[in-house]
Amino acid sequence: MAAGPYNYSYIFKYIIIGDMGVGKSCLLHQFTEKKFMADCPHTIGVEFGTRIIEVAGQKIKLQIWDTAGQERFRAVTRSYYRGAAGALMVYDITRRTTYNHLSSWLTDARNLTNPNTVIFLIGNKSDLDAQRDVTYDEAKQFAEENGLMFLECSAKTGENVEDAFLDTAKKIYKNIQDGSLDLNAAESGVQHKPSNGPRGANLGGESSGNKDPCSC
């Protein structure tokens, strides 16, 4: 975990959202541990994962916030969206209700993040094609209409999981390069770490900037 402090130049914050039981925690686990965790306990509140990846020769640390899916916890999970550079919005291809709820998740994602936040739609459980309840084409169309990136994945087999997380990072990185994502803007969800810079700058920084930790 606390990997060497200076061996990455960016930190991107991601959130994973979607209905309960769609496999959010399993996707995270597959991405960070390259393993499928059957019987993965349901997330209460928020859980965290991290992995360092490389995009265009730059090391980027992904800080991933995995949220609880039950409707009842929306009041809580909404507070986690702040300062996310990427949002992975997940549904289960074998349960149409989880797909039908996407517009509500999307509304939250749009309202609670900044306009540059990259939203990636994931249709999980692609290994269960026989039980499919949502076609690839309709989800693809939904993604296009809403300007989302899209892939069907399987947390179980690992299919496309890597791509979903990496493509999101590439898009964020591209936004930084072409200037559409302002790193200095509050809540950009991205921290730039100059090679020998100090640690501990704020994600989605509120106010406490470079205060000495023992000043108050």
Binding site: G45, G204, S208, S215
Partner: peptide, 14 residues
């Protein structure tokens, strides 16, 4: 507490 605050973790959401 100050340390957590400095890391913006004083919300204790974890």
């Amino acid at each position: 507490f100050s340390y957590l605050k400095y890391q913006n973790a004083d919300d204790l959401l974890f």
